[in-house]
């Protein structure tokens, strides 16, 4: 509705616009500040950090802390950096995102195009599952993972993320397929396509945007998860976020702020990258998760 400023207006409009731009620039600087500080700190040597000014640019930028964070920093008793944990996260995220997205797509398809009595109840129960505080399932899940030998394993975390991601992926696909014309499905039915053929040949090829949204949403959520990671894994099997927290909050030895920040950059990098490349879809995913319907 940007019509508000479209009209002919007097001389004060110019001042108003300068104020608006100034406000926005200041705000943008404030939002960027923590990222800036994180990046510059990671590029500074420790004595420069101790002596100097947080906001100053590094005098001699160096990637030394990045190498150290990646390959040498001590987390717990091992000193091999965060690289192992980074790969743990990748190995966890990729299958978890793939499985939950595929299941969500099938669920959304059934819940919109093959409705049966009670479909609303089924959807309602799956939807509410998105919103429960995970604290309410933490203890039983820990027990069950233990019983099946999945505790402290990537497989266990994949399973947990699929289970608690299903609600959202189903919601995304259901809302998308809800708007997908029923007549196309009817036409395909008359043309002789069956349940899976219709899904594979008609719906899926037209689901590009929602697949991107779902994958990004799931990727971000699972990569950024901390609670499940810290509850169901420990030591060398932990995901990136848990390792980062262990690194930063460990109180042994000299506090290497630059290494901490470098590790934080590594933890932030994948999701930031996704956000930069596909921000539009990222926002759409957030909205879809927020404004149901």
């Amino acid at each position: 509705m940007s019509a508000a400023t479209e009209t002919v207006s007097g001389g004060s409009a110019r001042t108003a616009r300068i104020v608006i731009y100034a406000l926005l620039l200041v705000l943008a600087a404030v939002y960027l500040l923590p990222l800036y500080v994180m990046l510059t700190t990671s590029l500074k040597p420790l004595d420069e950090i101790r002596a100097g000014d947080m906001l100053a640019l590094p005098r001699q930028p160096s990637l030394a802390s990045w190498y150290k964070a990646w390959g040498e920093a001590c987390i717990g008793v091992t000193c091999e950096g965060i690289k192992g944990y980074f790969w743990n996260s990748i190995k966890m995220v990729v299958p978890a995102v793939a499985i939950s997205t595929i299941l969500g797509a099938l669920n959304g398809y059934v819940l919109t195009k093959w409705r049966f009595p009670g479909h609303k109840l089924v959807f309602g129960l799956m939807l509410f599952a998105c919103f429960i505080p995970f604290q309410a399932v933490l203890i039983p899940m820990a027990r069950v993972l233990g019983i099946f030998g999945l505790a402290n394993s990537t497989a266990g975390l994949i399973f947990v993320h699929v289970v608690y991601g299903l609600g959202f992926t189903t919601l995304f696909f259901r809302n998308y397929y809800e708007a997908f014309p029923d007549e196309l499905v009817k036409a395909a039915m008359i043309d002789g396509a069956g349940f899976f053929k219709i899904f594979w040949r008609i719906l899926l090829p037209n689901s590009g945007p929602i697949i991107v949204v779902t994958v990004i949403y799931q990727f971000t959520n699972i990569w950024n998860d901390f609670l499940f990671g810290v509850s169901f894994s420990s030591g060398g099997a932990s995901p990136m976020t848990v390792a980062l927290n262990n690194l930063v909050s460990s109180s042994t030895g000299v506090k290497e702020y630059n290494v901490d920040m470098a590790a934080a950059v590594f933890a932030a990098l994948p999701t930031l990258l996704v956000y930069i490349v596909a921000g539009r879809y990222f926002v759409r995913g957030l909205m879809a998760g927020a404004v149901k319907g």
């Binding site: 196309l184 036409a187 008609i202």
Partner: peptide, 13 residues
């Protein structure tokens, strides 16, 4: 039978 729909229901892909 064959059917022609109001929206044509052409497969967009």
């Amino acid at each position: 039978i064959a059917m022609v729909f109001q929206s044509y229901a052409l497969y967009p892909n």
